[in-house]
Nucleic acid binder design. Structure first.
Lengths: 225, 225
DNA sequence: CTGTATCCGTGTTGATACTG
DNA sequence: CAGTATCAACACGGATACAG
């Protein structure tokens, strides 16, 4: 029942790969970054993973101290998986990986995207200079999940939950909101298509859409001789 | 001849894993972070990799634009692998992975370590506050390779090559220098063991050894019920 | 509904041997 | 020294069956 293949290497990065280097492991953590999740939710947001692999990854991450498995108190009594405090500290890994990979010549932003991915990308890509001086609360409804984003001090904080008072409310699919923020799609177009709805301060929405510039693509190397 | 298993996911981190998520890929990049390397050098510093896997990874990384293969001009005429400019930009990935993993309850710093790993760890772990105001040039001979480390403005720059003038010269194995910096081993002990030699400013050596504090370990989670 | 266990076809990995 | 060829062991993904 032990892992057979580690890297026998004291390098910190190599040890990180011993923990999260197996296929799907890092994406499981990504889906847990905004709070506990049930098995079925994880599966739904990780297209292509099979149930047995998800079970194995959760077991491995639990053994390594990244994930804990909790049983909610009755009457819910469902089991959920949650990151440990150290597990939550993995967020910078997604930010550096994401920032680097968006400069890849082969990155395709039109593929499906999960709520967690999109929200993590906001925290990765926010331009502190452009967001400075902007304070606002934005309620996001992505699919059937509610999140609250608070802009302050050039940074963005995001948590699950419903906002009592918000300057702006956006209801959309993750793909539609991603198209607005990263694809340059106009909110009006997306509203006309019925994939996005705004309520509240529409000028704030337009400014919000400018806060997350994508880095330039790296040059493609010369083709191999 | 294409990859069959990607993640169909627009998430930047997922795309990064499409590029560098295969076993060994990231460690190959690590070994290239300080300049071009030959096939055999890579193999020697990646204990456990087999030749065919190294070939496949280099091919894949070349396809993705991370690595280029160059033929040195005669009379050397040997082939070397080198990171592209974008490939060199992967360094923050090692830093975040390394910083996170050193807090793992299961990290074992006594395993073998390559020159590249140790030097990357210096750039990851340097404490800017402790290094501020310190300017120095240190020549490092690790095994049979020469590097120059320059401390300035609280940061450390490291490059391959021999230093004409240096305040301090350290000759050691990577393991021995790691023991001095991270394991608290005294330089005198290591010199007596014949695994390390100092020349020049010994007070600088002692101060150098304090510049790279390891983060605290994360709490081990409760054992599963 | 939430997982877990098992089987199976396929692709990936790794050790050894081998060729230029 | 730099890689290729072969083959055995393993990991993955899909399907299905099963337990609480």
């Amino acid at each position: 029942m032990e892992r057979k293949r580690w890297y026998e290497d004291a390098c910190g990065a190599a040890h990180a790969l011993d923990i999260v280097g197996e296929r799907w492991a890092l994406l499981v953590i990504r889906e847990l970054m905004f709070g506990p999740r049930r098995f079925g939710e994880l599966r739904a947001n990780l297209p292509g993973i099979s149930a047995n692999i998800l079970t194995q990854r959760l077991e491995g991450l639990e053994r390594e101290g990244v994930v804990v498995r909790r049983k909610l108190p009755p009457p819910a009594s469902v089991q959920v998986y949650e990151l440990t405090p150290w597990g939550y500290e993995a967020e910078p890994i997604f930010q550096t990986l994401g920032r680097w990979a968006t400069r890849s010549p082969t990155h395709d932003p039109t593929l499906p995207i999960s709520n967690a991915s999109l929200l993590l990308s906001f925290r990765t890509m926010i331009d502190a200079a452009k967001a400075r001086g902007l304070g606002a609360t934005i309620a996001l409804r992505l699919g059937n999940e509610d999140y609250v984003a608070r802009l302050a001090d050039g940074a963005i904080a995001i948590a699950r939950g419903e906002a009592e008072a918000a300057d702006l409310r956006i209801a959309a699919t993750a793909a539609a909101l991603g198209a607005a923020i990263y694809g340059g799609a106009a909110f009006e177009t997306l509203e006309a298509q019925g994939v996005l709805a705004l309520e509240g301060d529409r000028a704030l929405a337009r400014r919000f859409a400018t806060l997350f510039p994508l880095p330039e693509k790296a040059d493609a190397p010369p083709p191999p001789a």
